[in-house]
Design a protein around this nucleic acid. Structure first.
Lengths: 97, 97
DNA sequence: ATAATTTGGTTTATTAAATAAACTAGTTTA
DNA sequence: TAAACTAGTTTATTTAATAAACCAAATTAT
């Protein structure tokens, strides 16, 4: 079968780092994402918003030790999209099961 | 260990399709790539040139049945880059060996 | 013979995406 | 109370992806 197009929301260096981390971590926050990605806050803010807009990531804003705090987690839809992305990508990498 | 950056030359929808095909096919040409990717000639031309410029793909222009013909194949450097890309990507997909 | 069409592309212009710089708002420390 | 830090957002810039328009040679139709 022909190679399927890769979900462009996930096929992005930074968003893939973020989602990969959230898939492994189950729950995380803005700062953790900043540390593991090494990206700038602005870039992360933009990409998180994009992931939220399509419903892949849940963004909860609140407070923690008087400071604003943004916690992040994958939605069911996001988990499913990631799994589909991985299956499609395997065909590119010749890692087919 | 932290997630390594993915080689941006390979982490592109169309270029990954092209390279994936060339890795499997060993030898191919412009038209075959056009068929399997479904992309426009212009887009393929640009991406092939990019892959050639970094030394990942060998481009040989000649003639076949009186028509111009462009054959394509991976270079050693390209094969190595692809393999490294796959290894790095595995860490994103949680497919680690 | 020559005009129209097809093959096999390249070049250039447009659109979209990634990224960082500059900014905002509140908190803590000197 | 001013400086510095935390935790982000908004906006501007750079870069990349894509398609439209173009070019040249070969073929077919008139």
């Amino acid at each position: 079968m022909p190679l399927k197009d890769l979900n462009p929301i996930l096929h992005s260096q930074l968003r893939l780092k973020i989602v990969s981390h959230l898939m492994a971590a189950e729950e995380s926050d803005f700062n953790e994402v900043k540390e593991i990605t090494g990206a700038t806050s602005g870039n992360i803010s933009v990409q998180i918003k994009k992931l939220q807009k399509v419903g892949y990531v849940k963004v909860e804003k609140g407070f923690k030790n008087n400071y604003q705090h943004t916690s992040l987690s994958m939605t069911e839809e996001g988990i499913h999209a990631f799994e589909t992305y991985v299956e499609n990508l395997k065909n590119y990498l010749n890692l087919d099961d």
